[in-house]
Design a protein around this nucleic acid. Structure first.
Length: 218
DNA sequence: ACCCAGGGTCATA
DNA sequence: TATGACCATGGG
């Protein structure tokens, strides 16, 4: 994919939607919690769960790691998959604490940190990259279903490439800048919320109302 | 009463 | 390595 085309997509999305101020969280640790909880779930439900954790004063790695899994699951109920995510969140928090916490992890080189994140059961490539990009401000490009859908609809990718192949593709076509990558991913999500989800072949929907003219020329 | 949501793991072939 | 089942609440 030509770097120039990618920049045009970015410029168009940015001109349409403006800065998105992602990730919606108060602290890096909240970014990590949200990244695990948002797996195949709507963000509005994730927010509810995070509010519940805060209200019970357990929005911290040690509290989450040591509390009863059943108790955590109850607080996570709004996100769906709450039993599964209680286990995954505890897996993550135990790894996070054993690794020495945020400051220690900030000193770890990006690819090493990525491999370490992926050893946690429940942290896959997208969750790891959300954490790397938005909590640790590393320049990794997040690939999600929206990214695949938008760029395949635009004819810039096939859509069924491996996660790593797409990540390499985007990262090599753009300057390594965590601010740019973070804004780009947020804009892709913002654009996705405006289009038809039910018909993958619908080009008109893919381009959406406000973006259609500009993106259509790509 | 559907459909989908800012995925990931595990069992099976 | 490539599919499919499974996890589960809430909003459109």
């Amino acid at each position: 994919m030509a770097a120039e085309r990618l920049s045009v997509v970015y410029d168009t999305l940015y001109a349409t939607w403006g800065p998105q101020h992602w990730w919606p969280a108060e602290t890096p640790f909240e970014v990590m919690v949200g990244a695990v909880l948002t797996q195949n779930a709507s963000w509005s439900n994730v927010e509810k769960a995070i509010v519940r954790l805060g209200a019970m004063d357990v929005l911290g790695a040690s509290a989450i790691a040591t509390m009863a899994k059943s108790e955590l699951a109850e607080l996570l109920r709004p996100v769906g998959y709450f039993n599964l995510k209680a286990q995954r969140l505890q897996n993550f928090c135990r790894w996070y604490l054993s690794a020495g916490g945020f400051k220690a992890l900030c000193a770890v080189e990006t690819e090493v940190l990525r491999r370490q994140l992926l050893t946690v059961n429940g942290v896959g490539p997208e969750t790891a990259d959300d954490i790397l990009l938005y909590a640790f401000e590393r320049s990794v490009f997040v690939i999600d279903t929206y990214t695949r859908r938008l760029f395949s609809r635009l004819g810039l990718i096939q859509g069924d490439e491996s996660y790593e192949a797409l990540r390499a593709l985007f990262e090599s076509a753009l300057p390594a800048d965590p601010v740019l990558f973070g804004e780009f991913h947020a804009l892709i999500v913002r654009q996705a919320k405006n289009v038809c989800m039910t018909n993958p072949a619908c080009k008109q929907c893919a381009l959406s109302s406000r973006c259609s003219t500009a993106l259509d020329s790509i």
